[in-house]
Design a protein around this nucleic acid. Structure first.
Lengths: 242, 242
DNA sequence: TCTATTTACGAACGCTGTTCGTGTCAAGGT
DNA sequence: ACCTTGACACGAACAGCGTTCGTAAATAGA
């Protein structure tokens, strides 16, 4: 099956017929690379060295072959990104909607997405670039939509809120991975930890930055995912069931 | 002055002394490229062809010179990105805080940032990658902080809200520019307009995507910046002055 | 057994950011 | 007026990127 056909099937899935694949064909030559293998090793590389390190050559090197061999299973790198996000989304568990706990459920799903993104640093960049018709991402938004609707949120608000939440989660993780990458790649001088950041904020000219210097502590505060939780509270709190 | 020194000065500005530069030296050889010139033409290129088209070679070509010449004025491309974002932020007008209209003022600033980002498609990607100690971005967050504090928002909420808002605006514009780029670059088959998207959503198997098919209209709704306005209302509405 | 089709892959193309060494010009000291 | 100095401009090159082409090999079907 052509990689192009594989990709098309991901965006326009056959309506109902379940084509049960026959018995898996016996291995052919030496290591007939499969798409799953490519995706697996790509995720391994990202988990170890970050998304920036995932090049076609690096990936081919791990599978010890040449970069050209990958294009038998993948249309191009954007297609590979799509497969990676698809795998990520497939591993998310979407709870059965509980009208009494819809806020916690939405928070939980967002936290799951966040943790998956952070597990594979930088991959959220690929998530931002993805077309909204991908089957796996549609499964996620379907699940979130079910939760919000069960909570009594108006359909229009629910649809837009899902968009906003997914966008924020991706951006949050992207920023986090950029900081991580900078601390690893750069001269390690240009990256600043929280105390250094606090020092710089307080050292700013108080004439032009009065509030920044005064509230430097608040600006640099936030252990772990405090900022993430705050923003989610802000957004979910604004959704009003009637 | 070394480009590295220039960059350092942007992140740790001299506290007070105003070093008034002397009379500008008369032009030297033929066209002594200045940093402002580089930034100007870079923004021109981005406005015309998008951020993806801004390469060092392309930029040098417009200034008709070689790529090596740019490195006399700029440390590297990340440094150029920083200068571009700095220029963008410098053009934002930050209103004098009005405690009675702080919500509208915050919305206005965010809309300004959004429009600047969209004017230079794809540049928000550079904004996401920027260190938080840049002077120009600090000016913006200082201005937003002043507005929120004047509205009576708690300092900690204000600080985190600014972070969330800036992150969302950047992600929103990044997504928009990605769609724009895909429609220009790709085969123009893979990109779908709203009616086509609606058709695909309704054509999904209703068994596995019941809510998506039922509310396909809401999921694909949103003229102009409706989704943007919705999210900002969500976030700003959650900020409670006592 | 012979052929057709699929798969693997070395080599190359055009592109990117960046650096080295050299050339060229203006200013400063003698 | 000459020479030195320092800063700038820039051609050429390097390593790496995604991607394509042509070819070789190995299985599947007749």
């Amino acid at each position: 099956m052509n990689p192009r056909e594989r990709r098309a099937a991901r965006h326009q899935p056959p309506n109902a017929e379940a084509d049960a694949d026959a018995d898996p064909k016996p291995r052919r030559r030496k290591a007939p690379i499969t798409v799953e293998q490519v995706v697996d090793t790509a995720l391994d590389v990202i988990a170890m060295e970050g998304y920036e390190a995932l090049t076609m050559r690096r990936l081919a090197g791990v599978l010890d072959t040449g970069p050209a061999s990958l294009y038998a299973h993948v249309v191009n790198k954007a297609d590979l990104d799509e497969l990676l996000i698809g795998r990520l989304c497939a591993e998310l568990v979407l709870p059965e909607p509980d009208p009494a706990a819809w806020r916690e459920q939405i928070r939980g799903v967002c936290a799951q997405i966040r943790d998956q993104y952070l597990k594979y640093p930088g991959i959220s960049r690929a998530a931002l670039a993805m077309a909204p018709t991908n089957v796996e991402t549609l499964r996620v938004s379907e699940g979130m939509l079910a939760i919000l609707l069960s909570g009594g949120v108006a359909p229009q608000s629910a649809a837009w809120a899902i968009d906003a939440l997914l966008l924020y989660v991706a951006a949050y993780c992207l920023e986090a991975s950029i900081v991580r990458q900078r601390s690893a790649h750069d001269d390690a001088v240009w990256v600043v930890d929280r105390t250094e950041l606090l020092r710089r904020f307080t050292a700013l000219p108080a004439g032009t930055f009065p509030h920044t210097t005064r509230h430097a502590a608040e600006l640099t505060a936030g252990e772990g995912h405090d900022r993430f939780d705050f923003t989610l509270t802000l957004m979910i709190g604004g959704l009003t069931p009637p």
